[in-house]
Write a protein that binds this DNA or RNA. Structure first.
Lengths: 324, 324
DNA sequence: ATGAAAGCGCTAACAG
DNA sequence: CTGTTAGCGCTTTCAT
């Protein structure tokens, strides 16, 4: 045998037609026990493995799902992608991964790639090109943490509630001079704006002054340290900080410890990774597992045309995890 | 137009043959400028996107690479996968991701899936089924951190050297009562054994007593805390620990701080994530980026039959990063 | 219960 | 420079 055996080889070996082999493979139609056995024997003998690509071409369904996220290297996305892939593989879907690195150009290239490879659907957590670009694909798509759209389901956690929860927790501890650190706002991903609004609303309701800083370069540690330093210098009297992501919060916590200042910090995300590395950090926990489950459920419903098509915006509750 | 336009539709629209369209698409053969323009116009008009699946079937090459790792949710693998995917996408390869969760059964299922989907090659960092199982695939494969094999290239960092480096660093600080914490040894992934040997060799060379603990459940935080507690209780006099992974080291560091004991800790991995979250942790840094680059280079060479086929075991140098 | 034939969308000889 | 033809490996009518 030169190359890999194909269905035709199995058929010849078993002395039946390709059709029959296909039927055995897919459990379709009626097959006599004897034939089935003979075919299965041949499959085993030849160590035959069906070519899913050929099958995909014929049935016009690949069972591929594209996952478009900034990077698997960030714990929030890494863990979310893990959950999503896990649930999808359970349902016999396969995952093509795309790390956009927050670059619009890469995101566009990936979108084309996924379409060219006939994915059955996509879950998009990146946010550098307009969601309209995706709509043109006329494909089942679920977005995570994106601007609400008429045609695309969006799953996110309760960012506004999380912002409130974090701020209230600091207030409950008797703190009053609380600042907020956030990323630069992004039109396509309003989640950080929601967190900010939660913080500012609570501060206003309590008649307290508030101040929000917007950090750029969300993935660069050195830059964060620089900027945090100057923020600490500018705010010698603060006693609390709500920082809208755990990685930055962890850095701030470590700086506070070194400066021996008395500042309480609440972060956001609550991934296993950061909780493990920085158990003393209080944080707002996003329900990663539930978000993944919901996103997959919605996507598969769209793919199978069972989508009721009414509700398009899903907000999942967050919880506060107190640092130890 | 009912479904997606296909190459034939473009041909008809442009008034040429399918072959010509294909040639324009793939820049093959000689095409008159006029024809090319007409075809490109048709492509744009119809918003045509080539079907890569059909193409793959014909050329018997998918440009798919399977990535088999325990989980994208762990920073080491999440960051490594990010690097690998990044380099591969640059070369127009696409990545199918598999989270084996340390389960042999899942790993086997994924292997079958990848073969069925005609991947051009695989990079394997999971280690629950024998590497021989992969050899049967007769496919270009590169392994990361696995038992050396005659037929499969293995990329790893200098685990033995890292173990030595970590231990020597503790000794250089005047510490002498140093224990080592490791995972349970695994036949297929000898890297932790190497780290252990590095530690034990150095201790022996200095005539010092040594003790290695083997932790199970490498990804479960609560279990780790339990076991670490009892280790701390059993060792009231230690002044140093070499812990063979950063996540566990971070937990230990946090416990040490709470107990106010004076114990220096050196971890292993040195991911961006953990370095960001726990900058005060001293650790042995694995060259993630270089490992990814080398693994991809080797894989693509095998795929393109440029593999010289001599050296099969690649060990990359580690560095020590001092905590701040 | 089984087989023959057509074709999923594309590309690569081979002609012209 | 362009078109005709055959076929990648599989599944599915439509016969028998």
């Amino acid at each position: 045998m030169a190359g890999k055996p194909k269905l035709e080889d199995v058929a010849r070996f078993a002395g039946v037609s390709p059709t029959t082999v296909s039927r055995v493979l897919n459990n379709r139609g009626a097959i006599s026990d004897k034939t089935r056995r003979r075919v299965n024997d041949a499959i085993a003998q030849l160590n035959y493995h069906p070519n899913e690509i050929a099958r995909s071409l014929f049935v016009s369904k690949t069972h591929f799902i594209g996952l478009v996220f900034p990077t698997t290297g960030h714990p929030f996305y890494g863990e979310l992608i893990f959950q999503i892939e896990n649930i999808l593989s359970e349902k016999n879907y396969k995952v093509l991964i795309c790390n956009t690195m927050d670059q619009a150009e890469k995101e566009k290239k990936y979108l084309d790639m996924l379409l060219a490879n006939q994915v059955d659907g996509m879950i998009v957590g990146a946010h550098n090109i307009g969601i309209e670009t995706y709509q043109r694909a006329h494909l089942p798509i679920v977005a995570i943490d994106r601007k609400v759209s008429d045609t695309i389901a969006v799953v996110s956690s309760d960012n506004y509630g999380g912002g409130r929860l974090a701020t209230e927790d600091l207030l409950n501890q008797g703190l009053t001079k609380i600042i907020h650190i956030n990323s630069v706002p992004c039109e396509e991903a309003p989640s950080s704006l929601q967190r900010r609004k939660g913080y500012e609303d609570v501060m206003k309701e309590h008649g307290l002054p508030f101040k929000t800083y917007e950090l750029d370069y969300p993935f660069d540690r050195e830059a964060k340290i620089q900027i945090l330093s100057s923020i600490f210098a500018q705010n010698p009297a603060i006693d609390g900080m709500f920082i809208s992501d755990d990685m930055t919060a962890a850095i701030a916590l470590s700086m506070v410890r070194k400066m021996k200042r008395d500042i309480r910090i609440v972060g956001f995300d609550g991934t296993e990774t950061v909780t493990t590395c920085v158990p003393e950090l209080t944080t707002i926990v996003q329900p990663l597992r539930a978000m993944a489950q919901l996103a997959v459920d919605l996507l598969l419903k769209e793919i199978n045309n069972e989508f009721d098509g009414i509700k398009k915006n899903y907000i999942l509750p967050v919880t506060l995890r107190r640092g130890t």
